[in-house]
């Protein structure tokens, strides 16, 4: 098991958000986590990355059998986790080129030296693949970028760092259809036995382009439904109200399926 989450509870500024999440993912798999706003999706993503603003109050997070909670954010990144943020932060003064180069250097082993020429070539190739202007390399990281440009910059980093697990936190939100297509292409490019992903989303749109192996519904801090790709369509048809009612026990699962 690549990632195993057991009975995870977490809070933000003292307010409980996650109320016992169980979740596991094998290497090479793509999982989707869906759910209405405020259900705890972004909290889960930030907890996985170790954001200090989110407090883990119970449960465990295992990464390849080792405890993830003991690792600093940068150690998690170097261990192969990657989070594509819903709202990437602007860092004025730090150019994209310098940032990517230094990030590559921190990932070198021992005495290894970065081959700057070939690394630059790889950046350019990936930028072309994501239909990004070459000039981005000289711009300050995310500074003054449009929403779509920021998302592409996140995917560019993912392509460059080649993580073992990428968590895409609402990467599709606010994207037009062309941008969504490009971003999805980036995720699909890495797909393979050594790459897993968790796609966190509100809508099914992105899942038309990136096919998930498993789909989970997060509601009120718990995973309340899990299933195959067909669950996406069911949610699409019935909306989240169905889930809400179901959790409140107003309708049984069977009933809701029949009444649809």
């Amino acid at each position: 098991m690549l990632l195993e989450i057991k009975n995870l509870t977490a809070s933000v500024e003292g307010k409980p958000i996650l109320k016992g999440v169980d979740f596991s993912l094998d290497a090479g798999q793509t999982h989707a986590i869906m759910g209405p706003n405020g259900s705890g999706k972004s909290t889960l993503a930030n907890i996985l990355m170790g954001n200090p603003e989110y407090e883990v109050t119970g449960g465990s997070l295992l990464w390849n059998g080792t405890d993830l909670l003991g690792l600093e954010p940068h150690e998690r990144a170097l261990a192969g986790l990657f989070l594509s943020y819903q709202y990437p932060v602007e860092i004025p003064g730090l150019t994209v080129g310098k940032f990517l180069k230094r990030a590559a250097e921190t990932r070198l082993e021992g005495e290894e030296n970065l081959n700057v020429g070939s690394y630059l070539k790889e950046i350019r190739e990936n930028m072309e693949f994501l239909e990004m202007d070459r000039n981005f390399i000289n711009r300050y990281l995310n500074t003054g970028f449009s929403g779509g440009e920021k998302k592409r910059m996140e995917i560019l980093q993912m392509l460059m760092f080649k993580p073992r697990l990428a968590i895409l936190d609402e990467t599709d939100s606010g994207l037009d259809i062309d941008a969504l297509r490009v971003v999805s292409r980036g995720v699909n490019r890495l797909k393979g036995p050594g790459f897993s992903s968790i796609i966190i989303t509100h809508y099914q749109r992105i899942l038309d382009y990136v096919k998930p192996d498993r789909v989970h519904v997060l509601y009120d801090g718990r995973i309340v439904e899990s299933g195959g790709p067909e669950l996406v369509n069911e949610l699409e048809k019935k909306g989240y109200e169905w889930i809400k009612k179901q959790v409140r026990g107003e309708v049984s699962h069977e009933q809701s399926v029949h009444s649809a």
Binding site: E72, P73, A77, Q157
Partner: peptide, 24 residues
């Protein structure tokens, strides 16, 4: 946190932000 989650230590991240502040 953004830079830390990209693999930099807190110290490196802070130095990068400070250098960025001065970059212009």
């Amino acid at each position: 946190f953004y830079l830390q989650s990209r693999g930099f230590t807190e110290e490196e991240a802070a130095a990068m932000i400070v250098n960025g502040f001065l970059d212009p």
